[in-house]
Design a protein around this nucleic acid. Sequence first.
DNA 1: GTCTATAGCCAGATAGAC
DNA 2: GTCTATCTGGCTATAGAC
Lengths: 202, 202
Amino acid sequence: MVKSDIGTEKVILEAAKRVFHERGLAGARMQQIADEAGINKALLHYYFRNKEQLFKAVFTDAFAQVIPQINEIFDADQPLLDKIRTFAVRYTTLLMENHYLPGFIIQEINNNPNFAAEYLTPERRPNPQKLLSQIREEVEAGRIRPVEPLQLVVNLLGLCLFPFIAAEMIRHVTGMSKAQYQRFLAERQKHIPEFVINAITP
Amino acid sequence: MVKSDIGTEKVILEAAKRVFHERGLAGARMQQIADEAGINKALLHYYFRNKEQLFKAVFTDAFAQVIPQINEIFDADQPLLDKIRTFAVRYTTLLMENHYLPGFIIQEINNNPNFAAEYLTPERRPNPQKLLSQIREEVEAGRIRPVEPLQLVVNLLGLCLFPFIAAEMIRHVTGMSKAQYQRFLAERQKHIPEFVINAITP
DNA sequence: GTCTATAGCCAGATAGAC
DNA sequence: GTCTATCTGGCTATAGAC
């Protein structure tokens, strides 16, 4: 440990995140990661043995950014309708700051389905159990319309995530600029809860 | 044209679709496509010059499967609420028969944003104009709740597409089998229109 | 810890026989 | 039209100097 740089590892990881998020595992090039990090390829291997390990670090990080936050809201001690509002606002905000994450995660799991089991360990995985039973209770009490709880949760997730996953597509079809699209996404923070709550309120 | 096989080209294209849909452009291997087609690599190049051309054929085909169908419903002469029902049913059915398509298209556009402009030519692109103005009219007439038309269209698309794009993820988290997931998707054909119509009906 | 140079492999593409 | 054999380039990974 002559120069013992904690900095270099961090710089590499950040560069790797950018490249992997943009191009995926198969499309990423170690050379590009080195270039973005301002170092040379050999150092990548010095810090992270090989491409697979480097990817592993990036992919694990991706889940760490997202899953605890989701579960925190899922498990919060909050009435259902408030929780829906909180979820839309906080999750959208999180994604606006990490807009590549949803597409990246979904792409890698689709290309390599066993990644789901490898990375979504029992401790670290989205756990909607509490939210699901909360929905069930509200339905049974007649406070919201009868609805299959899982369908509702998938709806909420889809409404939040889809505009990030399909961003380039939607932007192209509508002709929105990046700035306009940002505004569109921000407006969804109010729109989504209103939409969902209208849908389930008797 | 000694044996003039229209069959071989078709066989190659079908094999290429399977492999590209599953692994994406960067992850696909010409060798695997040849294997799946039951022929050898050289023949791939005989029919489709190179990997890029073969991909182009597959990607173009992907849009051709989906876009005309969407536009047909978007442009149909049908009251808004009926159109929403039709869309959820027909689009979900279409995707159940081509469940790799949404993830494939979105992945390639995200990895290579200029593909959007290259493949979504003015003639062949989703065109929600008529649906958007239909929504605007219903809002202005007070027959549905005030809602930003584009938000509603994105909601409808997201509700239909998300469970296909994130299928592996959702299946893993919920522990559903493929058969169970099929049933879940089928149920959404009734669930989605009910959900959306409840959300916008005063 | 960081670099240059290079080994080794793999995948896309071509040559040429049948 | 289809095959086998081979070339070529690019990319991951390592050796070794500083």
